[in-house]
Structure formats: structure tokens, C-alpha cells
Design a protein around this nucleic acid. Structure first.
Lengths: 246, 246
DNA sequence: CGGCTGCTTGATTACGCTCAAGATTAGTGG
DNA sequence: CCACTAATCTTGAGCGTAATCAAGCAGCCG
């Protein structure tokens, strides 16, 4: 009895102050919010939820009730096409928000699937809205993050429409490295959480093409490639490939 | 003197209550806002500004201070590429918001250029934020519209990555007609505000391809095509083309 | 009328897809 | 532990869609 009480106290304690102590502090919603307001936000975060590789966080059509933040791991956003195929419209690393596109329609537009063992913070949207109303900084930060998402989407659109297969992959690798860097990981050597299939789908290419490109880049001395383990050997060359329009 | 006073009074009167009387009421920011709050919003709308064909409403890099709503006419959003080329990432009809992607970064990410003689409402962002803080419905509506923009962007991404040139054009035509319909225009006959060049750019195709597709669709009896004047003859056939993946 | 821009049409080429098979790794159960 | 299967990835050959290159045509303006 006393045991369970203690456990409950600890868990409450964990729920509180977690945003303040979280390493994602700057990447996440709390960015630019003072300590007191942070506490308010903290109270709203309902749950930290674990999602195993391949599991869905939500499916299209489900009602949109919560906003999710990736605590660790990674997710892909997948849209289903009429012909049964799927299109990956985004993937999300630590600190990034999930499902902002569903905020307007009120129901999820895409599926969110974990690429590896992952964890998310779940923030019930109506409560977040309530807190945001009291905390202008949070409101602004929320808008900022949706806007940022819009920007990423636009950059990706330009990537797909204007760049060659080589440039697409090079851009992706560099962008991926940059995102890891912002999260404090080493940037010259990393493992992709995406399969070749997912990567190809995301870049609007065939799997075979992506595979061939990896071997090309390896043969040309730009990358070390060993399955999903990637090493960047010549960043400048990659940059050139990336900039190379058409 | 008395003359100028009268003029000023009239102009103030015009500025007030314009949102309430505006035909875009339902499409625009005021959607779902009660009369009193509407008056608050109304006070914030600084200016109705005319923009002639080819004129820029803003350029990339300029500070983002105001949100714009299209009152009539149409605009394209254009991103500049490193090689001097440009990519049209969106175009905006009556009632649609402009520059939501720049809300986060604080400076404009793309240029907005009028496709025809157009007019916009300018809403200074800091004032809008102030009003939105007092009016939860407005805050929500603002988020909804950014989210909707995100959705459109995603749909466009899927269009570009997964569909053939034929399907892209067919989808565009139908979508364009639907958007006109929502604005009370006839849907079987209309004129495109985009040039072939812009249309091709937006759809990620070459001008020649778009031109060829128009003649194909005409020859197959789906469209009437006369320069930018388009008539839809067989909506079902267009729909089939549009759905036809790959 | 000439000069300009926007659009159409034709011929050729190339980039990346499809189809097909093999190689490597991971997962599973006897 | 190894055999077996399934999944993931790589490599090769041929093809197709849409881009590119190159004129020619129509509308629009001074």
C-alpha cells in the first residue's frame, strides 16, 4: 500500500518537471518559455508512450486528439494512395512533432509508424490549447513549429521536382547528418533508421536506383556504405552533388 | 476640409465591418468567429492593397510582418533555386492566406507574385497575435489554416512523386475547378490564371509536355482548350486520368 | 509591320523504372 | 547449432516516359 503510494508519487514527480529537464528542451515545444509556464505545460503532457519498431502511433482517419513529440527513436509519416501503394511524406527524429497536418481536419491524414524502438510524449490537444491560451509564447512556438514543418515540406517538394536522383540522395544524406548534429550526435558516421525501400519511397525513386547510387557514391570515395551504416568521407563532394541542379 | 473629413470617415467606415460583409467570410480567417470578435479582427486589418499582374507582394528575405489574404485575383509562391531557376510551390486564390510558411522563420521564404490584377488584405502579424490571444476561435482558425496549407502541400507532393504527367494535369484541372466552385464560379468553363510555363513549373513538367497534354486531352474529347480558356467536357474521363496512378 | 512573348509541334535522347535474378543478412524452428 | 525461409539489398539488361533541342506558329504591343 505504502509501496504503491510511493510508486505513484514517483511517477507523478516524473511527469512533472520532465519538460524542464528534458534534453529536447530547445528543440521541442518548451523552447522560449519561462520556468513557470513550463510547469503548466508539463502538467499537460499526459503520457510517455513507447512504440516498437513497425508499430503505428496512429492511423489515417482516426480522430486527432493528441499531439505527439518524439522523445527518442524515429517515425515515418505515410499517406495511403488509392492504388494501395504508400507514399512517405515525412520522417521525424527526436524532438520533432508528429501529425501537425491533422490539426486542421481534426482527424489523422496519414499514418505514423515507428522505424525503430521509439518513445513519444503525448499532449492532449484540447489541454494544450487551454495552456497555450494562457501562455502566448507557447502559442507562438506551436505556430512556429507548424510553419517550420511547412518549410521542410516545401524544401522536400523542390528536391523532388527539380533535382536528379544523385542530388536527391546527396541532399538527403547531408540533411540527415545535419539533423543528427543538431541532436548532438556525430555527423561523419551514423546509421540510417530508414530501409532502402523507405528511403527510395521518400525520395521518389525506385529501390534499385537508390541502391545503385549508394554504390556509386562509395566507388567515387564520397561515402562508406555498409548496409544502413553510413560514413561521410568527402562532405564537399556530396555538397557539390547536392547543389548540382538537374 | 469638410470634404477630406468626409472622405476619411468613409474610409474608416470601409475598414470597419469589412470582414463581416466580405464575401470571403467563410473561407477566410473570420470563419467561426462571432460578431463582436469579428469587429476586433476587423480593426486589425490595416489595409486593402492592390497588386498588379507581375508585381511582387513580397520577396524572399524580407522581414515577415504581415499576413496577407487574397481578396480577389491570384498569386503564385515562388522559391528561388541556387542555379537561378525558380520553383512554384503554390498558388493562391481568393480567400487564401499567403506566406504562412514564413511565420516561423520571421522572414519570407519565397516570393509572392500576382498572376493578374489582384487585391489583398494586409493583417499586421503582431496585432493579429494580440487579437488571437483574446479570441480563442481566431487562434484555432489560424492554426487550422496553416495545417490545411500543410495538407495541400502534402497532396501536391504525392501528386508530383507518384503520378504520371497525364494524371498530374488532370488532377490539377479538376482541383482548380473545385476551388473555383467553392468560390461560386462556374466549374465547367473557366480561364486559368497561370501561364503554360507556370503550370508546367508547378507540376514539375516541361512546358512542351504540358502543351502536348492539353492537345491530347482536347483530341480525346475531355477538354475544350483555347489558350488559357478551358472547358471541361468529360469530367469522368478526367477523374479516371487523375486516379490513374503511374 | 517587325519584334516579342507565349504556345504548339516534331525528332532525338537520357534518366531512371521495370523486370529478373542473385547475394547477403536476419529471423525461425527443428 | 545449423538448415531453412523470408526479407533486404545489390547488380544487370532493356525499355519507356518525359526532357531536351530545334523550329515554326499565333497573338499582342508599340
Amino acid at each position: 500500500m505504502s509501496n504503491s503510494q510511493t510508486a505513484k508519487a514517483v511517477s507523478l514527480q516524473q511527469l512533472r518537471q520532465n519538460c524542464a529537464n528534458c534534453s529536447l528542451h530547445d528543440l521541442c515545444l518548451p523552447a522560449g518559455i519561462n520556468d513557470q509556464d513550463l510547469d503548466n505545460l508539463d502538467r499537460v503532457v499526459a503520457e510517455r508512450r513507447r512504440v516498437d519498431r513497425g508499430q503505428f502511433l496512429y492511423l489515417p482517419g482516426q480522430p486527432y486528439t493528441s499531439l505527439f513529440v518524439v522523445r527518442f527513436g524515429s517515425f515515418k509519416s505515410v499517406a495511403s494512395l488509392p492504388d494501395g501503394e504508400e507514399q512517405i511524406i515525412g520522417f521525424h527524429l527526436t524532438g520533432e512533432l508528429l501529425g501537425l497536418d491533422s490539426l486542421g481536419p481534426g482527424k489523422h491524414q496519414a499514418a505514423a509508424q515507428a522505424l525503430e524502438t521509439s518513445s513519444v510524449c503525448e499532449v492532449p490537444y484540447d489541454q494544450l490549447e487551454r495552456v497555450a491560451h494562457a501562455v502566448p509564447g507557447l502559442q507562438r512556438q506551436l505556430l512556429n513549429m507548424v510553419s517550420r514543418e511547412l518549410n521542410q515540406e516545401q524544401n522536400h517538394l523542390v528536391l523532388i521536382t527539380r533535382k536528379s536522383a544523385r542530388a536527391r540522395l546527396a541532399t538527403f544524406i547531408l540533411g540527415y547528418a545535419r539533423r543528427l548534429e543538431a541532436r548532438g550526435h556525430r555527423t561523419d558516421e551514423f546509421t540510417l533508421s530508414l530501409s532502402r525501400y523507405d528511403l527510395a519511397n521518400y525520395l521518389g525513386l525506385a529501390v534499385e536506383t537508390v541502391s545503385r547510387l549508394f554504390t556509386s557514391f562509395r566507388d567515387e570515395g564520397m561515402l562508406r556504405v555498409e548496409r544502413r551504416r553510413i560514413g561521410i568521407l568527402d562532405r564537399d563532394a556530396l555538397k557539390r552533388e547536392s547543389d548540382h541542379c538537374d
